[in-house]
Each structure stands twice: as C-alpha cells, then as structure tokens.
Amino acid sequence: MNYNWDWSILVSEPYMGWLLQGFGWTIAVSSAAWLIAFTLGSTLGIMRTTESRLLRWIGTGYVELFRNVPLLVQFFLWFFVFPEILPDDASRWVKREMPLPAFTTAVVALGLYTASRVCEQVRSGIEAIGPGQRAAGKAMGFSEPQIYRYVLLPVGYRIIIPPLTSEFLTVFKNSSLALTIGVIELTAATRQIEEYTFQGFEAFTAATVIYSVITFAVMGAMRVVERRTRVPGTVALGAK
C-alpha cells in the first residue's frame, strides 16, 4: 500500500494545537452538560419518587419526551428550531448576540437529554432502597424533604455510582455530536487534521487513544470511589 506514515504530524504545530484545543472543547462541553444533567436529572428523579402525582407525571413526561428523540435531532431542534419560535427580540438575541452560540446550544441540548437518563438512574436508586426506610423516616417525624435529605438520597446516590459513571462517560462520548453544529471538539479536530494533512490514520488513532484512555481512567477511578462508598449490605445496581 502506498501510504506514507507520519506520526510526527500529531506533535507538530499547528496540528498538536488543534488536538489540544479539540480536547479542551470536549472536556468543556461534557462537564458543563453534566452539570445540567446531574442537577436537573436528580430533581426529576426525585420528583418521580415523591407522593405527588403531578410531580411524578411531570418527571415521567420529561423522560419519555427526551429519551425518545435522537440526540442529534435534539441538537438541531435547539439550534435551528428553538430561535425561530421565540418572540422576535429573543430570537434576534439568540441568533446574533448570544455568546458562543454553538457551544451554548451543545451544552443545553446534551445536558437536557442526559438529564432524562440521570433521572432514571436516580429514581431506580431511590426505589431500590425500598419503602421501609421511607416509612421509618416518617415514623421518626421527618418531613418529606428531610426524608430525602437524610435518608433516601445519601444511600440512593451511593448505590447508583456505577450507572452514573457510565452516564458521565456517555456524555463525554456524546459531546462529539457537538461537531454537527460547529463546535470543533476532539472528533472534529481530528477530522480537520485528516482534511489538512491527508494523514487520516494518525489523526483518528490519536482521538481513539484519547477517548479510550479517559474512559478507562474514569472507570478505574470510579471503581475506587465505589468501593469506598459502598453501603454495607447492598448491591450496586442501575436502571435498565
């Protein structure tokens, strides 16, 4: 085969800079989206386990809606459709004034989508505890918020560390979809290097190694955390 291998391309400028910048955007998109996903997802997950039918209904509706539309379509909805259905002033602001439009849209879209998945994990974590603890909390005279704060959540979150870890890694991988609306994250950066240098093997290999190393590192670290925080007498589990 007439292919000229040149691994040095990966450490030469400007290509190394592109890789690092792309990696930076990947981290930025994933962490910001995770912040939204974790906060909103936890809230929704708790809502789905409360005794209020309305709150449960809202939580379920959210999950069904966001989980059943492909993430890519959601990116397009936020980027193309959302500004058009806003009132004129707001529409103009989103289209023209909003800082970092592609990044912001990617974070919102990815965060809201992942919230639906986090919600399911949090719900299953709380449900796994069983009704006895809730009843015990009530008998102790705890209010519902207190039951969650002191009884259900501390245990629930510890149970769902493994599934939450894999949700975080999913966000990390899904952040690559941001390239479809113009964020030059890691995958886009390597594609750009391929385009410029015609060294596709080298560029794609770099991205592959970076994604794998991060994934395995996070998994390793979380396994330690999981071991340290395991609630005696429980098994870790997650929603299917």
Binding site: M1, N2, D6, I9, Y196, T197, F198, Q199
Partner: peptide, 26 residues
C-alpha cells in the same frame, strides 16, 4: 486518500487543494 493509497484510483479529478503537507501523502 484511502482509495489512492491502496491503488484503487490512478488519478483524482476533483477539486483538491494542493498544499505542502499533503504532498507527503500524494
């Protein structure tokens, strides 16, 4: 690039920018 490297095409008649980095490959 893949198709030129593995000998599938002898000549590419498209709209490809010529630059010095790419000349390492084609």
């Amino acid at each position: 690039i893949a198709l030129m490297a593995n000998g599938t095409i002898d000549l590419e008649c498209g709209s490809t920018t010529n630059n010095l980095t790419r000349q390492k490959q084609v």
